[in-house]
């Protein structure tokens, strides 16, 4: 098995680290080798954040090579675009349909949307996952809904994802996260 990768991108405070920990744990439970890298130096202050989870029989590098990332989970559109160099036509992209404002800058939303249209990967799912999360009663679980969507496309059995959520997510919010994951799986 080749090394494949799930790249998580977003804005500080988006929960990228937890989401990527869940996926890394799922791979380990499935018996694969995993490496994960995260850059969180200034993330708490609202800068760009990313984490990649690489999996396979034996993984060396914790970070990705341009044009080779198979799966991307983006919690925001500008951040998704910032990393498109890492994707290729076979990639699977799940992106939350939202733009987080940047201090001191006016963002041309329509040009961002235009650019999003040029990302013609094999699978491209753009959706307002915050609405889904709101429907489920907690806006903080949008990432887990997205993970549910992604889990159907990643070659790892579902039970490992569920076990990973149980292992990683604190008990208080475990139930709602499992529900969100289930809900995400139901999204076409």
């Amino acid at each position: 098995m080749n090394i494949e990768s799930v790249l998580f991108v977003g804005v500080g405070g988006d929960g990228i680290i937890t989401a990527s920990n869940v996926v890394a744990e799922a791979f380990m439970l499935a018996g694969l080798d995993v490496k994960k890298s995260e850059i969180h130096g200034m993330s708490q202050r609202g800068g760009s954040v990313s984490a990649s989870v690489r999996f396979g029989e034996k993984v060396y590098s914790p970070t990705d090579k341009l044009g080779t990332v198979k799966f991307m989970l983006a919690t925001e559109k500008i951040e998704a675009l910032r990393w498109i160099k890492y994707l290729n036509r076979d990639s699977v992209v799940v992106v939350n349909d939202r733009i987080v404002p940047i201090i001191n800058q006016t963002i041309d939303e329509s040009s961002i949307d235009e650019s999003m249209k040029t990302v013609d990967t094999k699978v491209f799912i753009q959706r307002n996952f915050l609405d889904d999360a709101k429907k489920l009663g907690n806006i903080k679980i949008a990432n887990t809904v997205m993970l549910g969507v992604l889990s159907k496309l990643i070659p790892v059995e579902e039970k490992f994802f569920i076990k990973a959520i149980e292992n990683i997510v604190p008990e208080k919010i475990r139930g709602i996260n499992l529900k969100a994951f289930e809900y995400g799986k139901g999204i076409e």
Binding site: R45, G47, I78, N88
Partner: peptide, 19 residues
Amino acid sequence: KSSVVFEDIELPKRPPALC
């Protein structure tokens, strides 16, 4: 030859800021 399929797009930087 380069494995890059999608070229960089000019985007506003997202620098960190005071909370």
